[in-house]
Nucleic acid binder design. Structure first.
Lengths: 133, 133
DNA sequence: CACTGTATTGACTTTAACGTAAAAAGACGG
DNA sequence: CCGTCTTTTTACGTTAAAGTCAATACAGTG
């Protein structure tokens, strides 16, 4: 049973515009079916869109995202260049691990700032209290 | 003892161009000293540049990075709007945590693809061996 | 001082990722 | 069937983040 999504359904679900989805299509990132001129998105298309948006959140360009998705898309059988695929996977993994470290560092720094701010707040509080006496 | 860095030193260290550093300066992200017209970067400037690049790797825009850095820069004392600062920190943290989840998911998917590829490889290997018999 | 190489400035160009507007074609409710 | 609404297509505009190029300006060296 093939359930389809319309373009507006997806734009609402993911909070993007139709322009964006058509743009992704023009870039070859999704290829919805057509009923006449109308676009019909399969659940698979929907998943791809999710992957695209996730990639974007991580700072990957659309081209990089495309490469990633194509890796998923290929069944392992039809992948002629297995060695090459494995290399790409390794490279992506390295990038992701670096991003993880970047995030950890940034979170730590945020905590420091937060601690400073909170300390400053309670300090102000105590001033207020002493003035209240 | 104030040790300075030249612009080219930094471009080499971080693998960016002079144009990029001057652009960041024009955006108010760094403000190196001058000796005549020549730019002199302090270790503090260097740290800021590191932060900028880290932010970029995580997919933040330069403006977002600027906000982040300004949060670090402000001593907690001179932060008039402590509540506002804490809110911003919380928002950033949420974003970062989401990115962490995104990374985890992507890593998992990469592992799946990798497993498939490796399985396919050993399969091919065994074919070769059986032909060798 | 002349030469050479590096820095700076300013202007213009480029690329990615959409936004916006206009015109035409379906889709639908009454 | 008519008007309204949505969708599509086409084309041009925009923004962020630099890249590229040209015209100097120094700075150090022999």
């Amino acid at each position: 049973m093939q359930r389809y999504f319309t373009i507006t359904q997806l734009t609402q679900e993911f909070d993007i515009t139709t322009r964006t989805l058509r743009f992704y299509e023009a870039q070859g990132l999704v290829t919805p079916h057509r009923r006449g001129r109308q676009r019909l998105y399969t659940p698979g298309d929907r998943t791809r869109i999710k992957l695209i948006l996730r990639g974007k959140r991580l700072g990957f360009s659309l081209n990089e995202v495309k490469e990633l998705i194509e890796m998923y898309g290929k069944a392992p059988g039809e992948t002629g260049q297995l060695r090459l695929l494995l290399d790409k996977i390794a490279a992506r993994r390295e990038e992701l691990l670096e991003k993880q470290r970047d995030i950890e560092l940034t979170l730590l720094e945020l905590e420091e700032v937060e601690a400073g701010a909170k300390a400053r707040m309670t300090e102000i509080q105590s001033h207020v209290k002493s003035e209240e006496v």
